[in-house]
Simulated scan of single mutants.
Amino acid sequence: HLNNVAFATMFENARVRFNRALRPWTDRPKNERSMVAAITINYLREGQFPDDVEVSSGVSKIGTSSYVIAQAMFQNGKCIATCDATIVCRTDGEGKPLRQAVVDELEKMRTKN
């Protein structure tokens, strides 16, 4: 059985990898950070250990200073959970608009409705 902490950890791991591929750390100003503002996880089915898990990620919404990463977790060909994480851009401790270069990269990973 995969408990709720395991689900959250796997979504976080995939989200970090997604963000690093989307916005390489070396391309941003030193004072610019992104942080998770909100997370919603929907548990759809029981997950089994040690069966493999696959997490798919994409950008579902782009705002002025934030974006939402939509994720789905699959195991044995079935979706077992979904996750929406709102990521906020911060500079010097305050919310700041996303740079155009970031928006352009986010658009490349936009989900289809």
Rank of each mutant, 00 (worst) to 15 (best):
S34L: 15
E94Q: 13
N4I: 03
F18D: 07
T40L: 11
F7Q: 09
W25N: 02
G47Q: 10
D27R: 04
V102E: 10
S60Y: 01
S57C: 13
G58I: 02
Q75K: 11
Q100S: 11
V59W: 00
I69A: 06
N76T: 11
R33T: 04
N13C: 11
N113V: 11
S57Y: 01
K30T: 14
R28I: 08
C79I: 13
Y43H: 07
P97C: 06
C89G: 08
N4H: 10
T86S: 03
V16Q: 09
T9D: 15
G95E: 11
L106P: 01
W25M: 05
S34E: 06
Q100N: 05
H1I: 13
A8M: 07
A81V: 07
K96P: 03
F11D: 08
S66C: 01
K78D: 14
R17S: 10
S34C: 07
E105G: 01
F74H: 15
N13W: 01
F7G: 03
A72K: 10
G95D: 05
M35D: 03
R28M: 11
V88F: 00
F7P: 02
P29A: 14
W25Q: 08
S66D: 02
E46Y: 12
Q48S: 13
M10A: 10
K112E: 14
D92W: 07
Q100E: 15
G95F: 01
K61G: 01
